[in-house]
Nucleic acid binder design. Sequence first.
DNA 1: GTTGGAATGAGTAGTACTACTCAATTTGGG
DNA 2: CCCAAATTGAGTAGTACTACTCATTCCAAC
Lengths: 217, 217
Amino acid sequence: MTPDKISLLIADDHPLFRAGVKQTIEKLEPAEIYEAEDGDKALQIIREIEPDVAVIDLRMPGKTGLEILSELYNSGVTTKIILLTMHKNVNYFYKAISVGAKGYLLKETAVHDLIEAVKIVYHGGTFISSRLKALIKSEKSDEVQNKLLIDSVNSLTSAERQIMKLLSEWKTNCEIADILFNSTRTIENHRANISDKLNLHGAHSLIQFAIENRELF
Amino acid sequence: MTPDKISLLIADDHPLFRAGVKQTIEKLEPAEIYEAEDGDKALQIIREIEPDVAVIDLRMPGKTGLEILSELYNSGVTTKIILLTMHKNVNYFYKAISVGAKGYLLKETAVHDLIEAVKIVYHGGTFISSRLKALIKSEKSDEVQNKLLIDSVNSLTSAERQIMKLLSEWKTNCEIADILFNSTRTIENHRANISDKLNLHGAHSLIQFAIENRELF
DNA sequence: GTTGGAATGAGTAGTACTACTCAATTTGGG
DNA sequence: CCCAAATTGAGTAGTACTACTCATTCCAAC
């Protein structure tokens, strides 16, 4: 089917998982396979070798998959990137798409889907886990809502982003104020503005969002 | 080295990861390999087939690895169980050991370590990721402290456990009170007792512990 | 059949965060 | 240079949780 060997990067910090992906691909498709165990090495290999396709884990030591996508977006690199993650968080999916991901696969996905995704993306298409598609449709949060939510997250200022990062580490307002050399009142005001932008209300809704979506900040 | 084929169960909800483990073992060691994609199937296979060794993920749909260990503890089943998880949480490790795990491996572990662990455990020994051993030693929380902490967690009453479960789902005191048909004051008192047992103090320390150690409840 | 743990509930005081409004200063881009 | 956005800070009121103390009921084990 595919006349030439596909060159492929597998980036994941779990050696056993990389072995699974590698052997699955090799068994069914001739391919030149590169491996990376952290985000920095993955980025380096993509820039130096420009493989046809890269299958990248979202959460890795060093740079996350989303950070790699952001850095390569509009950089002229032709490598097509598929995110492969265990996170069913739809916000991560919308973020990935918004920074140029060509595919989004859940780790719970069947072996067959990975081959399919690599082929399709290699030929210029896009691939999304059917399980995730179902989630997007079924969930109470409808599609438009979530796209808007990602736009809101992207609209956060750097001070606001900083606070979300610290919140995702369970820091209190007091601690954040100390770290940023600000008054507690300032942090409180930033929090209020963030909650406003993200349409969050109630007790610990903001810290919950920060922790459940920490890769977005 | 090993005269007879080892029979081995691999339980993990990620097909690609199972493929990695399976092929890694098969390449280097003759083995009869079974697979399970969730906790219930894993438990069923262990009870029916009693494989020599079972490599089980901590977090799975259905029963978790820790729940499987608890159910099999003192049940007479001879299968030796190795937990294989990405969680570096030392509390999970101490809990696993306290319910009879023979090995505790991090997913970031080298391929070689898995083979080693299976062999050692098969022959009656125990195996712990060197990375985790390092963590246990280095961390500010010393070994004795953490063992005591697990004893404290195990000493929680059923009402207290229930509250920790609900807290790990970000429920507020108000919501928990409604769910359990209690007064908010009762929940507050239970929370105080739990914080006392676990030696937790300050703002959101209890909900943080509940979320970061949810598999313990 | 009493004793101790568990579960239930309350009083009171203090801290942390939310939910509004308002305002001064700083800074980057047209 | 100027304007809009970002950053910084505060007033006030209310809610959620912490940190103690204390009391009642229930149940199971000795």
